[in-house]
Design a protein around this nucleic acid. Structure first.
Length: 439
RNA sequence: GUGAUUGUAGCUCAGUUGGUUAGAGCACCGGAUUGUGGUUCCGGGGGUCGCCGGUUCAAGUCCGGUCAGUCACCCCA
């Protein structure tokens, strides 16, 4: 027997029902924020991804040479395609540009909890708006979609951080670009390493003052409110006076938090400078949604990437967005019993007698389908008893019964399968009657 | 790429110090049942016990290898 390739999944009807539920919630959440749906190709030029993330990314791509000799790759994420699409029409589109998309992505990685080689992602991005209003909108959309799935403030929190502020801080210590990237990386994985190991890795940059630096990092990453954040900045980022860049970051923070607070989302977010996010292209705010119990990988992550559109050949256009995968959120909803069990089912099940009734029923069921109902019936002659059983098992709410007696009288019986009640209806009124019941 | 762990029916599992033809529950199919649901009863199909090799009179069971799943490391867009 053939099996799925490692990290790929089969979607049986019940799995498809779950996947479609996630898609439906994502779509509804995005539309309520007036994000416009779009999509790009699944296969892209390898260069597009290299351009965005660097050569080392190639090892994690499903990449190959096509018959035309082109180096191509299955998309590992959707942002580069979106950025390219925005770049191509940047001059002609109304701003701000609010887009979302839902699509399959592929990463050639070792499989483990919450991580597969094929997965679906929901992306929502805002282009061409540099102010924190866009960041707030995107974060609000993220929270909104999770709430629509039934998650509460007990279940998850969005941790918000600021890469610019980190960079300003590290720069104020006299560090160069390379050192800053290395340190951000280290800060990112600080929680997973022992303190001694972290100190050891800091020493090349700070020598004797590594301990002091780490203490400061720990203070900053423990900061949970605006006052403490300001205080830290005042204490460590000035030579007496705040630079304009630092002042702008602080006022962006105030505005971002204020907006989220006014949207009623204050309880869903927290300041957490421990969130850094791996890749270098983020600028400004970055954020990740985590389950409160910390048992899972990040549910979703995002941030501002002001230089990416330009890097991919477009105009200088700021952007902010997030992505949420189907795997981690699927696990969380499943554990919490929040996945609605809604099997795929018909509206109507037709129960028919053999011979003349069956002939009448075939015409009738096609009329019902043309009227928009989802209709099921036995594909071969089956005893009435079994048909009733099948009708119940199909999940249909109503059965339409057509036996010899009914055909004689020109009627059908409508049986409400949940209550057991039956009513007789002339065939000509059937569609109207069923429409009433199905509403 | 590294390490740990687990592989018996579609699913969850049992299988005695190695010993007859490998079992159960659930699920599925058929019948009791040609006019009214989940109950009940009866029956059925499904297994190269992950795969290959070794030890043995005899291997689901012991040994070696291998493959696959799971978890973690690396990485994380």
């Amino acid at each position: 027997m053939f099996k799925t390739l490692p990290g790929f999944r089969d979607f049986y009807p019940e799995d498809c029902a779950v996947r479609n539920y996630l898609f439906r919630v994502w779509r509804r959440a995005a539309l309520s924020f007036n994000f416009k749906e779009c999509d790009g190709p699944i296969l892209e030029s390898l260069e597009l991804f290299k351009e965005k993330s660097g050569d080392e990314i190639v090892g994690q791509l499903f990449a190959f040479t096509d018959r035309g000799g082109r180096e191509v790759a299955l998309r590992p994420e959707m942002t580069p395609s979106l950025a390219r699409m925005v770049a191509a029409r940047a001059q002609a589109m109304k701003r701000p540009i609010k887009w979302f998309c839902i699509g399959e992505n592929f990463r050639y990685e070792r499989r483990q909890r919450g991580r597969l080689r094929s997965f679906y992602q929901f992306n929502a991005d805002i282009f061409a708006e540099p102010g924190p209003g866009a960041d707030a909108e995107v974060i609000a959309a993220l929270i909104h979609s999770l709430r629509m799935m039934g998650l509460s403030t007990d279940d998850f929190v969005v941790r918000i951080s600021d890469r610019d502020l980190w960079i300003l801080y590290l720069r104020s210590l006299g560090l160069g670009e390379k050192a800053i990237l290395a340190l951000l990386n280290l800060i990112d994985k600080r929680e997973r390493l022992s303190r001694d190991v972290v100190l050891e890795r800091l020493r090349p940059f700070f020598h004797g003052s590594a301990e002091d630096f780490l203490l400061n990092v720990e203070t900053l990453t423990r900061t949970r409110n605006m006052d403490d954040l300001s205080a830290f900045v005042q204490a460590h980022l000035t030579g007496g006076e705040l630079s304009d860049a630092v002042k702008r970051r602080l006022s962006s923070w105030v505005e971002l938090l204020d907006r989220l607070e006014r949207m009623g989302l204050g309880n869903w977010i927290c300041i957490d400078m421990g969130v850094v996010r791996g890749l270098a292209y983020y600028t400004g705010f970055v954020f990740e949604a985590f389950d409160r119990r910390g048992e899972h990988r990040a549910i979703a992550g995002g941030g501002r990437y002001n230089h990416l559109v330009k890097k991919l050949g477009g105009p200088d256009m700021p952007a902010v967005g997030f992505a949420m995968g189907d795997v981690v959120i699927g696990q969380i909803l499943s554990e919490k019993g929040l996945l609605p069990c809604r099997p795929q089912k018909p509206d109507l099940f037709i129960i028919m007698g053999k011979g003349k009734p069956a002939a009448t029923a075939l015409g009738l069921l096609h009329d019902l389908r043309r009227a928009g109902f989802s209709v099921e019936y036995p594909l071969r002659p089956v005893a009435f008893g079994k048909q009733f059983k099948a009708a119940h098992q199909s999940g249909a709410g109503l059965a339409v019964i057509l036996g010899e007696d009914e055909v004689e009288k020109g009627v059908a019986k409508i049986k409400h399968l949940r209550s057991g009640k039956e009513e007789e209806t002339p065939l000509k009124d059937l569609v109207a009657k069923l429409s009433d019941h199905c509403r």
